[in-house]
Amino acid sequence: MNYETPPLLRLCNISYSHPGTSASLLQDINFSINREHVGLIGPNGCGKTTLFQLIMGLLKPDSGTILLEGNAVTKSRDIKKLRRKLGFLFQHSDDQLFSPTVLEDVAFGPLNLGLSPDDARDVSVQTLEQLGLKDFEGRITHNLSGGEKKLVALATILAMKPQLLLLDEPSNNLDPATRERLIEILRGLDLAHIIISHDLDFLAATCTTLYTVQDGSLQRCEQKQVHSHEHIHPYGDYPHQHGT
């Protein structure tokens, strides 16, 4: 008998192929996460985003089960519960923001969770402040810059107080300063997360375990290899990022 508490999320033998395609995209994925900070890397089109969509119940796996705190997620009630505990940051923030103003967008989730308008407003303002987005409440969402959109999208998710974050390429298109800020934010959160990224330095700064997706299977990388190398390029004194 195993009396340990089951992990927050566990994937058992998940396989998936997009309808209409013959070869399976993901095969026999086994994975579990409780409070870790996990990074996920893999070439373009290998199915990383698809894996997140499977976890969130947006796609149905061909076979295998997803367990939330040890219980299989099958009925729509289970999926609802899972979606309350997991927050998914989309690869494209444009798809995630739909309300006219930032405050309304951030408050959308809390209102759906049953908070009163006043409480929802408080939570939203707090979350925005926590992300350094003070005075953004009245801004029009579709006029924000790409980086601002990303942070606001993160705020919309954090306002729902999830236990696990799934972040799909969060550092894409961020300038070095905003990228640093995102790293600080993620380190300060004390939340479990899985981050998809092609930016190895970003992953090194935010994650303790790395997984790769390759040819449909998920593999844990052996111990992170920290290494440095000297290199040279134009505008080298300007703060910049590596590793994409």
Binding site: M56, L58, K80, R83, R84, F88, F90, H92, D94, D95, Q96, F98, L103, E104, A107, F108, G109, L111, N112, L113, P117, A120, R121, T156, I157, M160
Partner: peptide, 23 residues
Amino acid sequence: RAERVHQAMILRGFDGRLIPLKQ
């Protein structure tokens, strides 16, 4: 795009009812 926006809404607990922030 509409489909992805809809997914984003569902993930945030949307069930067909829009609750206004201002009353």
